[in-house]
Design a protein around this nucleic acid. Structure first.
Length: 305
DNA sequence: ACTGCGTCCTGGGGGC
DNA sequence: TGCCCCCAGGACGCAG
């Protein structure tokens, strides 16, 4: 399941291959499922083609789990970008020998004959060309951004923990801690709230909570400032380590742009390890429902205080 | 304003 | 062997 480390791995893979190549065709595959990928494009594939053909990608930018590729017209920015979200199972693939595949949904063809394919089994992902607008929070859009602009549909997304500016401490870490401690919601709901801090999904939320020894249902307002800081540090560390490993390919729905799996799954301490022993204390890892999702945790290390 | 739950979707796997 | 049901969950819309 693509979260920040997986999306960043894809961003890096795309950035090395798709820039400054003229787009000559955009085609939808898979009947209704391909159309569903374009559900946020009001004018459908016709509008998508109208805004992509003859142009080229100038960059590949990511904030949280959102990816976008600013478009160039005659080598100049045109204020528009192809916005992509991978959802649960979206994949960008750069096949050396373009062929058909059951889950191929949208194919972009470049003038040199190369293609960029978007695959998606569950079709929670989407592609849409949208206008760029200035960022409201003052920073750059995110990783890989050439300008402080965001696609309109992603403008509400918060900065992520690997954002270069956040890492420098020059922005909202204190504001984030304050907002977490001002909420009565369970801490895992706060970690997953993409408007507060983006990029964290179910796997890395569980892993960060285990590292910081925090129970998923502990109310934000009941956690000390120091513990919230430690939790954010843990989340930052696990995201960075997973990125270094190329991401987590837990259920094979995530691969990089060359079709290769990431290998962070072997480093997971709680996610998918129900019934196995906690590496820290030996207690049996449990799985429990929270927010209609599975939460994996150590009942001894992570107690609700 | 804030919170939480239902919905979308496919394929793999377990149970009978 | 085959079939049915459940489960995985990111983001958003809506109800209370």
């Amino acid at each position: 399941m693509p979260e920040l480390p997986e999306v960043e791995t894809v961003r890096e893979g795309l950035a090395g291959h798709v820039l400054h190549r003229s787009i000559v065709a955009v085609d939808v595959h898979g009947a209704g499922l391909g159309q569903r990928i374009l559900r946020h494009q009001a004018g459908g594939v016709d509008e998508l083609r109208g805004r992509m053909l003859g142009r080229a990608f100038g960059a590949v930018v990511r904030r949280g789990k959102f990816l976008w590729l600013p478009l160039l017209q005659e080598g100049e920015s045109c204020g528009e970008a192809l916005l992509a979200h991978l959802g649960m199972s979206g994949q960008f693939l750069l096949p050396e020998q373009p062929g058909q595949h059951r889950q191929l949904r949208v194919r972009t063809t470049f003038a040199d004959g190369g293609v960029l394919d978007f695959h998606d089994q569950r079709t929670f992902g989407y592609l849409t060309v949208t206008d760029l607008e200035p960022t409201a929070d003052g920073g750059a859009g995110g990783h890989g951004d050439p300008a402080p602009e965001l696609p309109a549909p992603a403008a509400h997304i918060g900065r992520d923990l690997l954002d270069p500016l956040r890492a420098l401490g020059s922005d909202g870490r204190e504001e984030l801690v304050r907002r977490i401690r001002g909420s009565r919601r369970g801490i895992k709901a706060l970690l997953l709230d993409q408007t507060l801090v983006s990029g964290i999904g179910n796997i890395y939320a569980d892993e960060a909570l285990w590292r910081a020894r925090v129970h998923y249902a502990q109310a934000g307002a009941s956690i000390t400032r120091a513990r919230v800081q430690r939790l954010l540090d843990s989340a930052t560390e696990v995201l960075a380590e997973a990125l270094a490993a190329g991401g987590t390919s837990f259920d094979s729905l995530y691969v990089n742009v060359n079709g290769a799996s990431g290998y962070f799954e072997r480093s997971l301490e709680v996610y998918g390890r129900e019934g196995q022993r906690c590496s820290r204390c030996g207690a049996l890892i449990r799985r429990a429902a929270f927010m209609n999702r599975s939460s994996h945790f150590c009942p001894r290390c992570q107690r609700k205080g």
